[in-house]
């Protein structure tokens, strides 16, 4: 019980500190912007630990952060193998194939007005559907190993990418395109030098959405059948064994992998679209 009271006191204290920083004179500094969310996150973690210990919450409901951290460090080989199976083999390969396929399709759509008017509404429609549902079918076709997961990811990534790339290719103004024509640029020159660079903000928007979808697709597809390795497999079997510390460890890995993937794309975006207003530093 004492620990629970301590948790409440800690919460109040951290809140007080955060309010002081946020309403203080240095609230716009980089340090404050980093410190406030960090204090908030660490307080939550500490409270979680104290309340779980103080109320003696059983492991099958909620393991304490320290237990999860211990499990994480003690089973790095298993987690690494799962990560390679699900993220590198399943999600990443599917992501690359899906993005390339979407580029090819978008340029085909771009060259024909008929295709654009026909395929885009269909693509928009499909992009809103719960495509994870195709997982059981694709697992049946491509087997239990990573190929079927990559296939699910390809299908999930393709439509949002197609919609975004096509929207991006419309970004240039008629005047800019005319300018290219007066310089006697052909279709491919115009595409390469003008329209593709102009489309990049949209492309990266799609790439970011797709990065989250890719990881979700690869993990959920493993719920429908997988070899005895993989993050989705580990989550579903560990849940069955009530080994929730292992489940949380996998979730931590998934969270780190997901945010690094997203962050990596954001960094590349910063380099490629340095000219765009949203990238200017104030």
């Amino acid at each position: 019980m004492n620990l629970v009271i301590a948790a409440v006191i800690l919460w109040l204290a951290a809140m007080w500190v955060n309010i002081r920083i946020a309403n203080g004179p240095a609230d716009d500094s980089q340090g404050a912007k980093l410190a406030v969310p960090l204090i908030f996150g660490l307080t939550l973690l500490a409270m979680w630990e104290m309340i779980v210990r103080g109320m003696e919450v059983p492991m099958v409901i909620l393991p304490a952060p320290s237990v999860i951290a211990a499990r994480l460090t003690s089973s790095i080989p298993i987690l690494w193998a799962d990560f390679v199976q699900t993220f590198v083999k399943g999600a990443l390969s599917g992501y690359v194939i899906g993005v390339i396929a979407a580029f090819v399709a978008a340029i085909a759509v771009d060259r024909s007005d008929f295709l654009r008017r026909g395929l885009l509404p269909v693509g928009n429609f499909v992009a809103a559907l719960p495509i994870v549902g195709t997982a059981p079918i694709l697992v049946m076709w491509y087997g239990f190993d990573w190929q079927s997961k990559a296939a699910v990811v390809v299908v999930m990534v393709f439509f949002p990418m197609l919609v975004n790339i096509t929207a991006g290719l419309q970004e240039t103004s008629a005047m800019q395109r005319d300018q290219m024509k007066t310089w006697a640029a052909g279709y491919w020159q115009g595409l390469w030098k003008l329209r593709l660079p102009a489309a990049m903000p949209f492309v990266f928007n799609g790439l970011k959405i797709a990065s989250t979808l890719a990881l979700i697709g690869a993990i959920v597809a493993e719920f429908f059948g997988s070899p005895i390795v993989g993050m989705g497999f580990r989550i579903s079997t560990s849940v069955g064994q009530l080994a929730l510390d292992m489940v949380w460890a996998e979730i931590v890995v998934a969270a780190i992998a997901g945010s690094l993937f997203y962050g990596g794309i954001a960094v590349i975006e910063r380099i490629v679209t340095f000219w765009h207003p949203s990238q200017r530093r104030g």
Binding site: V60, I61, L215, V220, W248, I251, S259
Partner: peptide
């Protein structure tokens, strides 16, 4: 939004099941 929250789904189901 960048992390696959869906991975938590099986655990939520089982935890609620156990209570």
């Amino acid at each position: 939004q960048t992390i696959p929250v869906l991975a938590i789904a099986p655990m939520i189901i089982v935890v609620f099941n156990s209570i």
